[in-house]
Computed example of a mutant assay.
Amino acid sequence: MRRITVTNHVSLDGVMQAPASPEEDLRGHFPYGGWAVPDSDDVLASEMSAGMGEGGAMLFGRRTYETMAAFWPHQTDGNPFTTFLDAADKFVVSRNPNLDLPWQNSMLLAGNAADTVAELKQTDGDDLGILGSGDLVRSLAAAHLIDEYVLIMHPLVLGTGTRLFGRTYQRLELTRSVTTPKGVIVAYYRPI
């Protein structure tokens, strides 16, 4: 059986929207895109690279897949994330059975997210990692399909934006944490 791990940047008030760039996700006229970038440092990069070294497949919601597919396959700067993401199997959850998936190694899971992911989770294969994909995370959390959360908590409060958990009730147990020099806490949680 495959495990599912969610890895997401969040503000202290739980916002996950548009951590990487101003244009990443403008829904609701979100004004703070790129909020996570100033907190990058070598400790955070090392912690995220360690997770890449474990390999695995990726699981995306449609919107996050389209954003990632428009950027990562076109990077030529030698970034190790490009190599990892290009090589990984990418499962994309969508209600649209005709969704075009141009990025190599991409497979569509058409239908209800909780149902299609529950079926995938029961198969043999690599563990699954989720980046972004807030709607998908909330759906899978409500169905108790998430095995681990890696929350990259930044020392800021945004006050607006899409929150990772929304109205989901979830008790978590801290299994490990790392604090970076810039005050980012990388916390590893498992649902209990």
Rank of each mutant, 00 (worst) to 15 (best):
S46I: 07
E47P: 08
M48Y: 09
S49D: 14
S49M: 15
G53I: 13
E54D: 15
G55F: 11
M58N: 13
L59A: 13
G61F: 08
R62P: 03
R63E: 13
Y65Q: 10
Y65W: 10
E66T: 08
M68V: 13
W72D: 09
P73T: 03
P73E: 07
P73K: 05
T76E: 15
T76W: 09
D77H: 12
G78E: 11
G78S: 09
P80K: 05
F81E: 14
T82A: 10
T82H: 14
T82P: 09
L85F: 15
A87I: 11
A87Q: 12
A87H: 12
A88T: 07
A88N: 04
D89I: 05
V92L: 02
V93H: 02
V93E: 00
S94N: 03
S94R: 00
S94Q: 01
N96G: 07
P97A: 06
P97N: 03
N98V: 05
D100W: 06
L101E: 03
P102N: 05
Q104P: 10
Q104N: 13
N105D: 05
N112F: 08
A113S: 00
A114R: 06
T116I: 07
V117W: 05
V117E: 06
V117Y: 05
E119S: 13
E119F: 09
L120E: 05
K121G: 01
K121H: 06
K121A: 03
Q122Y: 00
T123N: 08
G125F: 01
G125T: 04
G125I: 04
G129F: 07
L131R: 14
G132H: 02
S133K: 02
S133P: 01
G134I: 00
D135P: 06
L136K: 01
L136N: 02
V137K: 05
L140G: 01
A143F: 04
H144M: 10
L145F: 04
L145G: 01
I146Q: 01
E148V: 00
E148S: 07
Y149R: 06
